[in-house]
Write a protein that binds this DNA or RNA. Structure first.
Length: 750
RNA sequence: GGGGAAUUAGCUCAGUGGUUUAGAGCACUCGGUUUACAUCCGAGGGGUCGUAGGUUCAAAUCCUACAUUCCCCACCA
């Protein structure tokens, strides 16, 4: 053995050994109990970050521990298509070539992104492997694999059949220029100076920069704590409007800032996100006054078909004529949303989206998701995180599952164009020109084939007729261009990875044992998996949830590119080894709280790896001197050997027994850092500093070396799930009863 | 604005059901080349547990308020 433990020399060798042994492949065995974890799928085209490392370290620890305990331990790997994120990354690449997503039809863009992901997919997979993650690669799933997609589509079909799916309006960021929606992350805000109009609504006055949206007002709102307007709450205000006599109800909502303007807000649910939310809270009507073509809609009455800014001008003049404008603040500066590409104005519009009912009277998704937590069929660790889950699920309203991005699973709904002339289409014609308009008009000039081939987006009004089907229901149909929210598909991840509903794996391994992930996606991901799991199978998708904390940068701040404090885990793997990095991160998170990147601990555990390496060397050296060269030469602890044992021998054996108990106890409670710390303290300070120093000076070492051999091999087993590489490497050096590798060895019994 | 959490040694953090002298790692001081390991060994210094009250025989731990910090969600008509 080398005098130092050199991780770089052994990591690759050990990996090969494990793979040749096929230890990570789980066999369904009726005699064994299953233990299953699904790996939260990292972005397929991304690379390993510190959060992934921690996640893998914890899950591998659990899986190796249970595998050694004799469970059929299955760790299901996979990667996520990461819809929006990947599309954005890809578009950045396109921009470098002077192109954008608007230069391509939907299908071409999709296959370009597909190829991009395939080219970049290898990195994260290699890194998962290098981490020593004992995942079962034979059961690998990518979220866009055909059979994975098929399960997701079947779920949608089932939900549609059972009345859980509906289409409704939802506020989106819409660009008239590009004829498409933009996600929140694609929006930036630009500072602009606009006149702020103080408009009279009978006895009340409202400050707004957008008088034209008053046509879509369906209430006035004040803050419930605002004494000035207390008497108006609940009353209906009557006033003379530009369209004639009008009336609006006054509601109280804490969203309203009493300090802004007059403290009275006009609520326009159709054209403002916050107003939309207020509208939901108070059951207000959504009155759409602006269309996707950038003109006022039919609801705007005599202002219909005017462009937004023309309407603003006209309405302002009409208000002046009515004497309804109290004053105009010309120096008002505010931020307006613009698209990230051209900084062109973004309008908030309500457009039809696909929704899932979460509290359907017969098939509620929400209620059972809360019940299982209350009834402890699903346990959340650490316990104090539970409230995040329950509160969010309690307040959850219907879920908008459609997204206007290309990179994802397309909603399997089909519209017959000639039956839905009101559908808005955007496509590239045969010569690549961008065309947009209503289906009824466009079909006169373009063939369906041309439209389908060049199709970018399609907006079907709420009332459109559609057919849900995995494949085209016939000629004349166009498929919905919206894709599913990532969480709609990843919410079915435990079912997808186990190939619900007919596979043997599903029957044996479902429900899974533990779901381990970062706490920030409890609401978005965990809650959805619980909902889908119960909805489809009647049972929870996992019995326990463990939520780890976030790793902050060394300076205690959140890692971010702009601060330049992002830690690349590869650097630490390279420098200190995978084991040290894994163990260091695990020991940084004692109780699921956020923590700073524990560089000192990583170095400390690198030293520890070297320490146990040298303890082994020394033990072997002493054994050799005593002519103990094979397993059979050892006097191992037994009833008989006990008579010859000293107090020290018995003490260290007792210490080992206590350690095994402590480690098991802490692992059951997800107290990984404590378990790791216990092993560290025992091996270094009890075994090395105390016991080995004692044995060193003995005249007759035979009995004690047997004890030491036993203690060392048991400790290596305990440590293996934490630091798999160094323990396996040492294991190979020590004489043993059989040739079983450590990864396949049984867990110590106290 | 709504929600979650933190405040313990110079630094980073444990302290899980309320009880001896409040622990660990790093850093620091002193001393060590003994059959492995200087990525080592031995010894040591360092804390009125954020502040103020309260409950109790007993509080870092439970309760209340305040201060400071961090994070999540929603974000200004």
């Amino acid at each position: 053995m080398d005098s130092k433990f050199e991780h770089k020399k052994i990591e690759e060798k050990i990996l090969k050994r494990w793979e040749e042994g096929n230890y990570f492949h789980a066999e369904r065995d009726p005699k064994k109990k299953p233990f299953t974890i699904v790996l939260p799928p990292p972005n397929a085209s991304g690379k390993m970050h510190t959060g992934n490392v921690l996640m893998i370290a914890i899950e591998d620890l659990l899986i190796r521990w249970k595998r050694m305990q004799g469970y059929s331990a299955l760790w299901l790997p996979g990667t996520d298509h990461a819809g929006f994120e990947t599309q954005t990354t890809f578009e950045r690449e396109l921009r470098k070539k002077g192109k954008s997503r608007f230069d391509y039809d939907r299908n071409t863009l999709y296959s370009m992104i597909w190829n991009f992901v395939q080219e970049n997919k290898g990195l994260i997979e290699t890194q998962i492997r290098q981490m020593g993650a004992s995942v079962d690669w034979s059961r690998y799933t990518f979220t866009l694999d055909n059979d994975a997609v098929d399960i997701v589509l079947s779920t949608f079909e089932k939900m549609e059949k059972e009345g859980l799916v509906y289409r409704d309006d939802y506020v989106v960021n819409y660009s008239f220029k590009w004829g498409t929606t933009f996600s929140d992350a694609e929006i930036t805000f630009k500072e602009r100076k606009d006149p702020l109009y103080y408009i009279k609504y009978g006895p009340l006055t409202v400050a707004t920069v957008r008088p034209e949206t008053k046509l879509g007002d369906t209430a006035l709102a004040v803050n419930p704590k605002d004494k000035r307007y207390k008497n108006f709450v609940g009353k209906v205000i009557e006033f003379e409007d530009v369209t004639g006599p009008n009336s609006l109800k006054v509601i109280a909502d804490s969203y309203v800032d009493p300090k802004f303007g007059t403290g009275v807000l006009k609520v326009t649910p159709a054209h403002d996100k916050n107003d939309f939310e207020i509208g939901i809270r108070h059951g207000l009507e959504v009155k759409n006054v602006i269309s996707t073509d950038g003109r006022m809609s039919a609801n705007a009455g005599k202002y219909a078909d005017l462009k937004v800014l023309e309407a603003r001008k006209q309405i302002t003049e009409d208000l002046q004529a009515l004497g309804s404008i109290e004053k105009i603040d010309e120096s008002y500066e505010h931020l307006v949303p613009v698209d990230y590409r051209s900084e062109d104005y973004i309008e908030q519009l309500v457009l039809p989206n696909w929704f899932i009912k979460v509290d359907h009277p017969k098939k509620s998704l929400k209620k059972p998701a809360l019940d299982v937590v209350k009834q402890k069929k699903l346990k959340i660790f650490p316990k104090w995180r539970e409230i995040t889950y329950t509160r969010w699920v309690e307040n959850m309203h219907d879920w908008a599952i459609s997204r206007q991005v290309v990179w994802g699973i397309r909603v399997p709904a089909w519209y017959k164009l000639d039956e839905n002339p009101e559908i808005t289409l955007a496509f590239l014609d045969d010569t690549g020109n961008f065309i947009t308009g209503k289906a009824g008009e466009l079909l006169k000039d373009y063939s369906l084939e041309t439209i389908e081939k060049g199709l970018q987006t399609l907006y079907a009004p709420k009332s459109s007729k559609y057919v849900v089907s995995k494949t085209s229901p016939g000629t004349g149909y166009l498929q919905e261009t919206d894709t599913f929210d990532t969480w709609f598909s990843s919410g079915q991840w435990p079912l997808v990875t186990l190939r619900y509903p007919n596979s043997e794996d599903y029957k044996y391994y479902y429900p899974t044992s533990v779901l381990e992930t970062g706490w920030e996606i409890v609401t978005r991901w965990v809650s959805r998996m619980v909902m889908f799991g119960i909805y489809l199978t009647g049972d929870v998708p996992f019995h326990e949830v463990y939520l780890h904390g976030h790793i902050r940068a060394i300076d205690g701040k959140k890692m971010s590119k702009s601060l330049g404090n992002v830690i690349n885990p590869e650097e630490y793997m390279e420098k200190y080894g995978v084991d040290a990095l894994r163990m260091g991160l695990i020991s940084g998170t004692a109780n699921g709280k956020d923590f700073n990147f524990p560089r000192d601990k990583i170095i400390g555990y690198r030293n520890f790896a070297n320490k146990i390496w040298n303890m082994t060397r020394f033990m072997l050296m002493m054994m050799e001197k005593e002519d103990i060269t094979k397993y059979a030469d050892l006097i191992l602890p037994s009833k008989e050997a006990e008579k010859a044992m000293s107090k020290k021998d018995k003490e260290v054996l007792k210490g080992l027994e206590g350690l095994i108990k402590k480690v098991d106890k802490n692992l059951v409670k997800y107290r990984f850092a404590d378990a790791g710390e216990d092993i560290y303290q025992f091996m270094w300070h009890e075994v090395a500093d105390n016991y080995i120093e004692h044995v060193k000076n003995l005249e007759d070492k035979k009995v004690s070396l047997g004890v030491l051999h036993h203690v060392m091999t048991e400790c290596l087993k305990l440590l293996h799930p934490f630091m798999p590489f160094v323990t396996e490497a040492i294991w190979q050096e020590i004489p043993r009863a059989d040739s079983v590798d450590l990864a396949a060895s049984p867990w110590p019994q106290a």
